[in-house]
Design a protein around this nucleic acid. Structure first.
Length: 418
DNA sequence: TCTGGGGTCCTAGGACCC
DNA sequence: TCTGGGGTCCTAGGACCC
């Protein structure tokens, strides 16, 4: 049995934790640079506030309903997420954190110890609420996709109170029948549109399709989804937890960038993040890609990207940064107002099996990287970085509606007036 | 005043080779 | 007269997720 536990509009709920004045009001949270809406609390949802619309386009609607608007406060969310995940991890010895607010639990081996899953789900909910004041939904199912479906039911379908269980044919069919096909994990807007033309409307309709045939018409991904909906695991636990095959760090600038130094510093910062992510999952990159572009919404759209192949796969920041130094001149162009750039690591190898090269010695300094990681884990990722990242203030984001970092800064600690 | 997120994986189609 | 294989690699863009 699997469980999927995730928060109810996590960012918006996080904003409500330390600010009682907004708990009963509609709240939305914006993405970086206050670009789009990325979280809508249940009260705001009732006002039909759309998710992932550009902020400036819905501003009038938000004003009209007196909606509370907040910029993304990742420092706060990351800290609350860690607390939430820690609490959830008590309920299984096998947890996989899938995103900042979602984690899967695997109960293989002790299914028989739990005789009432529904009750167990409520125990998890209550525990998380007590510790963090974040509301979560809990879904149980024999496959990851069914656990996802149950989670959807728990939060969205009438008759469920934050917990749903799929543990037999009856419950499986009941929930899938109530679920619209576009709400299935792995089915997006495009595919659901096509499916509906084929008269497939509910999750159950999809589950009843022949998987092999659907693979031909769509892709492997949909074939897997169909099998999973029928209780046949395709994403084994190991697959769910698999290492990433590509790792990226990209960001839009708060203001357009035209000078080479800022762009260069941005690339260095992205190298740092990507290399850190690689080390975290124990991977080395054989190749990296770097790109930068102007705004696609303006005229004269400019985009350049280059791939660099290392003689020996690496996860060392300085090696990455050196590579970028070479590519940089191919990408930078004066007269371009850069809006976004990024670095990606592709073609990853396992760090366990570092492949040497007879003619090119690895430039990696694993001990130095370990030292860097240890220090940054303890004192924050900004503590030690490359000199070439200096003046990273360039990506000073627009964050007009930022709330305090209640749990991670002494200066922001909540005060109670007596 | 101006404004449009970030991340990962998959696939179709083109270029190139023998 | 008209037609013409099979494989690998690369890349851009699509699709999905949160």
């Amino acid at each position: 049995m699997f469980a999927l536990v995730d928060a109810v509009s996590f960012y918006a709920s996080a904003e409500k934790v330390f600010d009682p004045t907004i708990r009963k009001r509609p709240v939305v949270v914006l993405t970086n640079n206050d670009g789009c809406i990325c979280a809508v609390c249940p009260i705001a949802k009732k006002l039909n506030i759309p998710k992932f619309e550009p902020y400036f386009k819905v501003k009038a609607q938000l004003d009209k309903y007196n909606v509370v608007v907040r910029s993304s406060n990742y420092e706060l969310y990351a800290d609350l997420s860690a607390r939430m995940m820690n609490e959830i991890s008590r309920f299984s010895d096998n947890q996989y954190i899938y995103s900042i607010d979602e984690s899967f639990l695997n109960f293989t081996g002790f299914n028989h110890l739990i005789n009432d899953w529904n009750e167990y789900g409520h125990t998890i909910r209550k525990a998380v609420w007590r510790k963090t004041k974040i509301p979560v939904g809990v879904g149980f199912g024999p496959t990851a996709t069914l656990a996802k479906a149950a989670n959807h039911a728990a939060k969205k379908l009438p008759g469920f109170d934050g917990v749903a269980v799929i543990n037999n044919e009856l419950s499986r069919k009941r929930i899938l029948k109530l679920m619209s096909v576009e709400d299935v994990w792995g089915v997006g807007r495009r595919i659901s549109k096509k499916l509906k033309l084929m008269d497939i409307h509910t999750a159950l309709d999809l589950a009843n399709q022949p998987a092999k045939l659907m693979r031909k018409q769509f892709s492997v991904v949909l074939e897997r989804t169909i099998n999973e909906l029928n209780g046949t695991p395709c994403l084994s636990w190991d697959d769910v937890k698999q290492k990433k095959k590509e790792v990226y760090s990209t960001r839009s600038f708060g203001e357009r960038i035209t000078d080479p130094h800022s762009l260069r510093a941005a690339f260095a910062a992205h190298c740092n993040i990507v290399a850190r992510k690689l080390r975290k999952q124990g991977s080395l990159a054989k190749r990296i890609v770097i790109f930068a572009h102007s705004s696609p919404f303006e005229d004269h759209y400019y985009k350049r990207s280059f791939i660099y192949e290392f003689p020996v796969a690496s996860n060392d920041v300085s090696v990455f940064s050196n590579a970028v130094k070479h590519l940089f001149l191919n990408i930078y162009s004066p007269n371009v107002r850069f809006q976004k750039c990024g670095v990606g690591a592709i073609e990853l190898e396992d760090e366990m099996y570092r492949q040497g090269d007879l003619f090119n010695l690895s430039q990696d300094k694993p001990e130095l990287m370990k030292c860097l990681d240890t220090i940054n884990q303890r004192f924050g990722n900004d503590t030690l970085k490359l000199a070439s990242e200096k003046q990273t203030s360039f990506w000073r984001m627009r964050r007009e509606f930022l709330s305090p970092k209640y749990t991670t800064r002494w200066s922001d600690i909540p005060r109670i007036k007596c």
